[in-house]
Computed example of a mutant assay.
Amino acid sequence: MPMPEVHGPGALRVGIVGRGRLGGAVREACRTEGAAVVFTVGRNGGWHTGPVPDVVIDASAPAAHQDVLDYCTAHRVPLVACVSDLAEAQWAALGRLAETVAVVRATNLSFAHYLQSRIAEFTAGLVAGSPRPASTTVRERHPQGKAHRPSATALALAETWTRASGRPVEDIADERAGLPVSEHELTHSWTGESLHVRHHVASWAVPALGALTAAAWARSAGPGTATMRTVYDDLTARSSP
């Protein structure tokens, strides 16, 4: 999967909101990939007033939403929104921001999760006419301390299956234990057999590189709301023969 160019004289300039695990991983990804970090701010303030970045990556928390929105609106800067547990009013505000700049709603930043979702759609098409309908469930695991349960990714995976198959999942199981970072699994069960499509992320470098990929894509995108599905669909289409 190609990543938009971030090196050289036209290197991507990024503003990072959030100093937690994802924010720190995004800073490291910028260092290794040759992107310039214009500023890094916490969710409690300390906004930089110097050069304006090409894109802002919000890896903070809902409490910082208004500051992020105000900055991107004032400077007309595209946004990669990695905070998944926003309120409806906050999502609506991002929709209004998207009328002037690109806004990527990044529920899950991983390319392999994108593939997992595409596999779910493919599987739904194959089993649609099956005389033995599958019982489908979603399971997600995060370490203790993950506030949002079920995770936004688990809910999105279940929604993808329901939309593609016309049938809801039987259950969404959430577990809070184990090591970073996450697991998401879609299971299809028939009598005597089952199919498991499992995605495991073991490093914060994975979503960080996804955030940087989304930022590089958003820099050249026009106004509008996009998802990581939009980003990866576009990038994989560019690389297809």
Rank of each mutant, 00 (worst) to 15 (best):
Met1Arg: 10
Pro9Tyr: 02
Gly15Thr: 04
Gly15Lys: 00
Ile16Ser: 00
Gly20Ser: 02
Gly24Asp: 06
Ala29Trp: 03
Gly34Gln: 04
Ala36Glu: 08
His48Leu: 05
Gly50Asp: 01
Val52Cys: 01
Val55Cys: 04
Val56Leu: 01
Asp58Trp: 02
Ala61Pro: 02
Pro62Met: 04
Ala63Leu: 06
Ala64Cys: 07
Tyr71Ile: 08
Tyr71Gly: 08
Cys72Ala: 12
Val77Ser: 00
Val77Arg: 01
Val80Ile: 12
Val83Lys: 10
Ser84Thr: 14
Trp91Ser: 04
Ala92Ser: 15
Ala93Pro: 09
Ala106Pro: 02
Asn108Cys: 13
Leu109Met: 14
Ser110Met: 06
Ser110Gln: 05
Phe111Cys: 05
Ala112Leu: 12
Tyr114Phe: 15
Tyr114Leu: 12
Gln116Thr: 14
Gln116Phe: 05
Glu121Lys: 05
Thr123Pro: 00
Ala124Cys: 09
Ala128Val: 08
Ser130Cys: 05
Pro131Glu: 00
Pro131Val: 05
Ser135Met: 06
Ser135Val: 11
Glu140Val: 08
His142Asp: 13
Gly145Thr: 05
Ala147Trp: 02
Pro150Lys: 09
Pro150Arg: 10
Glu159Met: 10
Thr160Ile: 05
Thr162Leu: 09
Arg163Asn: 14
Ala164Cys: 10
Val169Ile: 01
Glu183Asn: 05
Thr187Trp: 04
Thr187Tyr: 03
Ser189Gly: 05
Ser189Asn: 07
Ser194Glu: 15
Ala202Cys: 11
Ala202Trp: 07
Ser203Lys: 12
Ser203Trp: 10
Ser203Cys: 13
Trp204Arg: 10
Ala205Gln: 15
Trp217Ile: 09
Ala218Val: 07
Arg219Thr: 07
Arg229Asp: 15
Arg229Ile: 02
Arg229Ala: 10
Arg229Glu: 15
Asp233Cys: 03
Asp234Val: 08
Asp234Ile: 04
Ala237Val: 01
Pro241Asp: 11
